[in-house]
Design a protein around this nucleic acid. Sequence first.
DNA 1: CCCGTGATTTAT
DNA 2: TAAATCACGGGG
Length: 202
Amino acid sequence: MNTPRNFPRADRAFFRRDTVALARLLLGQRLVRQLPDGTRLAGIISETEAYLGPEDKAAHTFGGRHTPRNHAMWLDAGTTYVYFTYGMHHCMNVVAEREGIPQAALLRALVPTEGLGTMQLLRPKARRPEDYCSGPAKLCQALAIDRTLNESDLTTSSDLWIEVLRDHPLPDHQILAGPRVGIGYAEEWVDRPLRFRITPDA
DNA sequence: CCCGTGATTTAT
DNA sequence: TAAATCACGGGG
């Protein structure tokens, strides 16, 4: 088996940009999770959403709210914001911009590439690899990401990081933008095209 | 379509 | 203190 080539870890400058740009740049990069036993789980980021802070009625920081749960969003770029919802699911965001600007990109899907056997164990209900990471809570389950990883620094953590496979965002024609999922309460923000996907081959 | 499930937030 | 909400996923 060939070991995946070592790509550089995303640094502060990678994350500290406007949130839409980050959400787009994340597409095609590799999210890596290293378990305490050394097992490496990874996948290529294939879907993201941008949450634009105080103005954005869909964002947890809408209106400038700053609560214990969303505190991570107020921290520096490259921090994780992992939250628990519906009594059973975790979702992971990557904080953008600089400290004090509470915006983040939600990771919505990955194409799993490493540690598939372990992912199947972590996702017993999934039938095929395509189902392992095809949703924001699914990918957290598949990579064993929970609140203990909230407020992690992706530039230094040995548990969770992003490897930069490409220095530039995918070309526009390979990115499909559309409305975000599950935010029907967000009024005029409902239809803003802040969801980004790698264009499915057709 | 509906429902589980409980932390978190918001209202009282 | 109590009620409502929820950036979801799975099953029918």
